[in-house]
Computed example of a mutant assay.
Amino acid sequence: MKKYYLGIGLLIILVVGVLLRGYYNNEIVLCAVGDILLDRGVRKEMKGDYDHPYKKVKNILNEADITIGNLECPITYGGTPALKRPIIIFKADPENSEAVKEAGFDILNLANNHTMDYGTEGIVNTINTLKKTNINFIGAGSNYEDARKPLYAQAKNCKIGFLGYSVFPPEGYITFSDRPDVAKIDIKSLKDEIKSAKSKCDFLVISIHWGKEYGFYRSDMQKKLAYAIIDSGGDLIIGHHPHVLQGIEGYKDGIIFYSLGNFVFDRQIQNGTDETIIVNFKLKNKRLDRIEIIPAKIRNCQPERVYGEEAHYILDRLKMYSDGMNIKIDIRESKGYIKF
């Protein structure tokens, strides 16, 4: 009789193990980070070691099924500098592309106010270099329509769509609809573009460059635009440009991260520019199931995960920025968690 019950017990354990393995194998992890600058102080800090910025976080980035970030500069040797202050004209050596790929990045958003810093040649070189390295991109293309095309990625049983937009036009550059450019927000077509993209995928992510630099709280414009995106079918909004963390909001069935702050960046004077987060969005049954927030500090142009008091300080501030925005962040073991 004991052998009988022992056999039944082992069978139950085996069945539960198989079910749990199926559950977790079916989970999809989408990892997102903020602004990546590969020039100015970061270039000096690298000293030709293009892998330098990612050495302390690449293990986290590579664990995800898909990892996305915002590239805050063109990747090019050539091009004509934009007509603006030289101190805010950026470009990265093409050798960076291999290091970005090895760090774990699968998708880069190019829709921002620095991608056109070296004009048409700069953006074309960026696109070609990323293609050679097998890094996908959103928010830029050979003309107006091409720049607005969604990207689709199949992860296990889920088809995830990505769109990239910038509220700000490229500085010091004249835009022509038939030439290479980034995807700027066009209110007249935005809702239709999102509805169309969502009809072709299970889960839709919008990466958007917006907000006030160094402002910790969303603006009315960000809120209004975010709601319009979610109302039109967007599931997740990932914001960047403010260079500091902003709040998180739950709106209807969507989630809005107003700003992920800097990620790979040089030293800035303003408070909060060295505080960042790595966010793991965990999808189950084609829906967002839970979110894991990993706090980090940028030191010597390297993001590095932090623990204890440093982690709690960043996460507590993130909770403060998110106050009243229909979201609950639990802090445990130096991480933040959001459950749906």
Rank of each mutant, 00 (worst) to 15 (best):
K3G: 12
K3C: 11
Y4F: 15
L6V: 15
G7A: 09
I8A: 14
L10Y: 14
G17A: 06
L19F: 13
Y24W: 12
N25Y: 11
I28L: 03
G34K: 06
L38H: 10
D39I: 03
G41R: 08
R43K: 14
K55I: 07
I60R: 07
E63Q: 13
P74F: 05
I75T: 13
P86S: 10
I88D: 13
N96V: 13
S97M: 10
K101F: 12
F105G: 07
F105K: 03
D106C: 08
Y118M: 09
E121G: 05
I123W: 02
V124D: 03
K132W: 02
I138M: 03
A140S: 04
N143L: 07
D146H: 07
A147R: 00
Y152N: 04
K156F: 06
N157A: 09
G164K: 00
F168C: 06
S177W: 11
R179W: 00
K184A: 08
D186W: 01
K191T: 06
A197Y: 00
F203V: 02
L204A: 01
V205N: 03
I208E: 02
I208Q: 00
I208G: 01
G211R: 02
E213S: 07
Y214E: 08
F216C: 05
F216P: 04
Y217W: 08
Y217F: 14
K224A: 14
D231P: 04
I237S: 01
H243N: 04
G250R: 09
K252I: 13
G254M: 06
G254F: 01
G261F: 02
N271S: 12
T276A: 07
I277K: 04
L283A: 03
K286P: 01
L288M: 09
R290H: 14
P295E: 11
K297T: 10
Q302P: 11
V306S: 08
G308E: 05
G308F: 07
G308R: 13
E310H: 15
Y313K: 11
I314E: 04
L318F: 08
L318N: 05
L318Q: 05
I327A: 08
K335M: 10
Y337C: 03
K339G: 11
F340V: 12
